[in-house]
Amino acid sequence: MTVDARPSVWSRLLRRLWWETRAAHVVWQRELLHYARNPARLIMTLAQPVVYLLVLGTGLGAMLPGGGGYPTYLFPGVLLMTVQAPAIAIGASVAVDREAGFLREMLVAPVHRVSLLAGRCAGAATVATCQGVLVLGLAGLAHIPYAPELMLALIAEMALIAFAMTAFVALLAVVISPTPTFHAALGCVLTPLVFLSGALFPIAGLPVWLTALMVANPLTYVIDLLRRTIAPYLARPEPAAVHSPVLMELAVTAGVGLLSVLLAARRLSRPR
């Protein structure tokens, strides 16, 4: 009996897996279609990091003693902001979809919630990476060489960061309700995190409590990861703010993403 049952269990499992993969794939596709159909949204989310690079990079750089290196310093932060915008928009759309009903239509389908969330985060990662590639085109303005290995490494890292951020924002969207409270919470958490990540200025000589916040801030490691990927290609590398192994930083980012997907899925599948 058990011998007979085995192949059927396996084939059932494979079919199930194929079904879930296709479900995640259409959710991914839907996110891309949304972006493709709203070019205005694309341009607006792209405008912010470019403005930061051009205005803050050159303007603030001119004020600093020896500020010629400031655009270079700012570049990882600009990349972070580039992927952050679509990650937040798509992660937060879980909250909008939940109230408008499209999420309910997905939830009533016989598909695992992990597939739905993973598809959405993958969609955000794809959109964010595409925008990131465009911003990478401006690397020359920040005196960063267009080395192919560097560009590929940065693209891969941006995809990972976008996935993790979308998952994290989606988790917040699922846990914090109603929607206005969620949006308020998002604004009140994210801005300080960006300031405390070392994206805009080196964080040194801060009071102890702010240093503690900086060390606990996941964005600190994301920025450090990008900065250290770029450093070997620079003529005059910046001293890094934190020194944690790059592999650990990658693992933490991926871990935060996966954990967020699982927790959000768990929360969604629990009927009220």
Binding site: W19, R22, A23, H25, R30
Partner: peptide
């Protein structure tokens, strides 16, 4: 697209 999306979710 709406209908196809649903069809895929239902396998």
């Amino acid at each position: 697209e709406n209908l196809a999306f649903h069809a895929t979710l239902y396998g």
